[in-house]
Design a protein around this nucleic acid. Structure first.
Lengths: 139, 139
DNA sequence: AAGGTCCCTATAGTGACTACAGGGTTAGAT
DNA sequence: ATCTAACCCTGTAGTCACTATAGGGACCTT
């Protein structure tokens, strides 16, 4: 209980991360290879818990593993300017906003599609009809 | 020019679909295996163009290939009720709306994160700080 | 000593493509 | 007739962020 070393299962429960995912983060270089016990079990220090928690929060906010890799590097050099951090977050926000706009356009299209359905036979189905093409002559 | 048979490249240009993607759709069973020329080139009929156009429009609307497979099956049986079509579209719309809600929550979080940035050093960066954990004691 | 729960490695699967590598075919210009 | 560029072919592996499985070893309690 005063043991500072954690098994992968404990880490898993503490961060709501599947064991396989933790091993995957290790293989992808996001987590350092931890010490091993005699029986070849991974043995994590509290710093690993912090790092994994950081990764999971950033993932929850939709940052990619590549972005997280950069954020972790930046976080390690505490004296540098945090402009680069800001940059990554801004870029990610812009991407999220683009996705929202795209999905809203989609939503309008689907709404329109569904509002036209009279629920008769497929032959007179406006959804199928809208999807079915009068293809353009390109070549 | 009165030739009804199309090469994969022509089909590609007419539907703005990469050649590899067309072959991928064939391998996934969305497009039937077309006839071949003497030189073993794929030779497509106008019906294939229609089918591919349908697939691409549905993809643009965010339907999955599995959903499209079902839609294509339904579209082929023109006498049946189009309820099932409606069902798929509604389900898809609901999913799009869920995604929009998720992304909006994300956007708010990122906005909050960014609004706190004073752009000093990483040590005082509120973005890094927010991501960095005071992990909960779970086990 | 047995059973259950943990842990290990390695590999393959997901979705929807995309990108090669390493060739064969065809159309048009010379 | 020959050359060349543009097209086409198959097959495989890569993308992202995991997830799942197989086939085993370790550990703890009873």
């Amino acid at each position: 209980m005063t043991n500072k070393h954690l098994t992968i299962g404990t880490l898993s429960r503490m961060t709501a991360t599947k064991v396989e995912t933790i091993r995957f983060y290790e293989k992808s270089g996001l987590l350092a290879k931890p010490a091993r016990t005699e029986g070849n079990y991974r043995s994590y220090a509290p710093a690993d818990l912090n790092r994994l928690s950081f990764i999971r929060r950033a993932r929850d906010l939709g940052f990619s593993l590549d972005q997280i890799r950069v954020l972790l590097d930046l976080a390690d050099d505490r004296s540098r300017s945090c402009e680069a951090v800001d940059e990554i977050a801004k870029e990610h926000l812009a991407e999220v906003e683009r996705k929202i706009a795209d999905l809203k356009a989609l939503q309008r299209e689907l709404d329109r599609l569904l509002s036209q359905c009279r629920c008769g036979t497929v032959a007179e189905c406006r959804i199928i009809e809208t999807l079915s093409p009068l293809p353009l002559e390109v070549n």
